[in-house]
Amino acid sequence: MSFDERGGAPVSRPSTTEGREAASREPADGERANAGRRVTLFGWAGFEGFSAAGTGLGRGGAGRVSVGTVLLGLVVPGVLLLVWLLASELTPIPDYLLPSPAQVVGAGVELANQGLLGTYILISLQRVLLGFAIGASIGLALGAVVGLSGVADRMLAPTLGAIRAVPSLAWLPLLTVFLGIFETPKITLIAIGAAFPVYTTVSAALRHVDPHLVEAGRAFGLGRLALLTTVQLPAVVPSVISGLRLALAQAWLFLVAAELLASSMGLGFLLTDSANNGRTDRIFLAILLLAILGKTSDALVGLGERALLKRWS
């Protein structure tokens, strides 16, 4: 099953649009149509990005998590679910403030029947992965240059530091003006957010590679490039991975920021849209989905981390 089919098909199904109740949730025609096409357009690229990250990081599939660990980790969510259930059933808090778990599931089923749930999840996922892949690559390249070259450090670090100091959301209006309202500005924003954690951790780590090891490499005849691949890069693998994990978290953060403010699709849009319509059940649904997706993607990187650390330490 390809990403385009899942992302694109529901949009073209008549029931999708017919089933809508509130006009306010109807996105601008232009973007709606375009967004559908964009899904297809970016679907391929997004899928590529995903599989690249997947094979790169999850290779080996090492790191088995024991059943006990998983069960232990599920204790608190289970208790929370129970508290939520009891609170919604036994207290007089009205449903529009605190929907029951069943209502939230119902909201999900309803959205799924309209064909929106899958679309929203996929478009959000696609934005995150694409933005993350682009941002992390740029961060890696910048981090390597600044971390390895004293000249580049003195030349670029102040500027990059200043760019990093700009609060993320400040970019959004500018990006919208420059890049339009479709996928590009959102992915750019996410890429900006993902680039900096990688840049910072990688450049710092490269600067602090044990000089003794570098000297040993030099003594045994390694030139600049060989030194980089034999000593410096392997030495920073753990930092690169923690940078990537931070970047992924940032990517989700920036995704929601972008979708909350300027979007007609995706989980962030679902949040604002539902807030405007008083659909607390859908807000709960969106938050739960973000938690699950964020945690899952982080766990996947974590699996890759274990495999890599086993190899590189």
Partner: peptide, 23 residues
């Protein structure tokens, strides 16, 4: 020249054999 430093200075991510290979 070849040097054996005062500290072993082995690459932590390489096996013993692969460290010797570096020489």
């Amino acid at each position: 020249c070849a040097v054996a430093f005062q500290e072993p200075r082995l690459l932590p991510w390489r096996t013993v054999a692969r460290n010797i290979e570096l020489g």
